[in-house]
Amino acid sequence: MTTLDVRTIPPVNRHPTIHDAFEELEAGETLTIVNDHEPKPLFYEFQAEVETFDADGYEVEHVEDGKFVAEFPKRQA
């Protein structure tokens, strides 16, 4: 599992950074994102554009104010 805290990354660079990290995963692995808001727009973007994204395995938890932890699993090969 790879964890990426994007809270310190400028918003304009977040999605490209996340996409790059997801592409580096092996099939069956999960990218965990720590974000300052619920990443619903990112979820919809992945669902529409990333064929290897397992949308059924997506989970998000609101840990505290300003901290959301979301799991973006990559499909098994």
Rank of each mutant, 00 (worst) to 15 (best):
D56S: 08
H15E: 12
G28L: 01
K74V: 06
T32A: 10
K40L: 15
E49I: 12
R75P: 01
A55Y: 14
T52Q: 10
V6M: 06
T17R: 09
L31I: 12
D36I: 07
L42Y: 09
V50S: 03
T2L: 12
E64K: 12
L4D: 06
E24P: 12
E26P: 05
G66W: 07
E59R: 15
D5I: 00
G66D: 00
A55Q: 06
V50P: 00
F22R: 11
A77M: 15
T52E: 15
N13I: 10
P10K: 01
E59C: 15
V6G: 04
F46N: 03
G57N: 08
K40M: 11
Q47M: 07
E38K: 07
P11R: 11
F43G: 05
A48C: 01
E49V: 08
K74Y: 01
A27T: 07
V34N: 10
L42G: 13
H62E: 04
K74A: 01
I33H: 02
I18Q: 09
P39Q: 03
V6H: 07
G66F: 15
L42A: 14
L42F: 15
K40V: 06
R75L: 13
Y58A: 11
P73C: 05
M1S: 11
R7I: 09
F72I: 00
P73I: 03
A77C: 08
K74S: 01
K74I: 08
K40G: 06
E64Q: 14
F53C: 02
E49G: 15
R14A: 09
P73F: 02
E59M: 08
T30M: 01
I33R: 00
H15Y: 12
E71Q: 10
V34W: 13
H19E: 14
E51I: 09
E23W: 04
R75T: 10
D36G: 01
H37G: 08
A21V: 02
D56G: 03
I33S: 06
T8I: 09
V50G: 03
I18G: 05
K74W: 01
N35G: 00
V60Q: 04
E59Y: 04
Y44A: 04
G28F: 07
A77H: 14
E61G: 10
R14L: 00
E24H: 13
V63R: 03
G57M: 14
F43S: 03
V60Y: 04
I9M: 04
H37D: 02
E61T: 08
L42T: 09
E64F: 00
F46L: 10
L4G: 05
D54P: 11
M1W: 09
L42K: 06
L31V: 14
N35P: 04
M1V: 02
V6F: 03
M1N: 04
H62Y: 12
N35D: 10
D54C: 06
Y58K: 07
K67N: 00
R75D: 13
R75V: 15
T30Y: 02
K67I: 13
P39L: 12
F68K: 01
M1P: 15
V34T: 05
P16W: 05
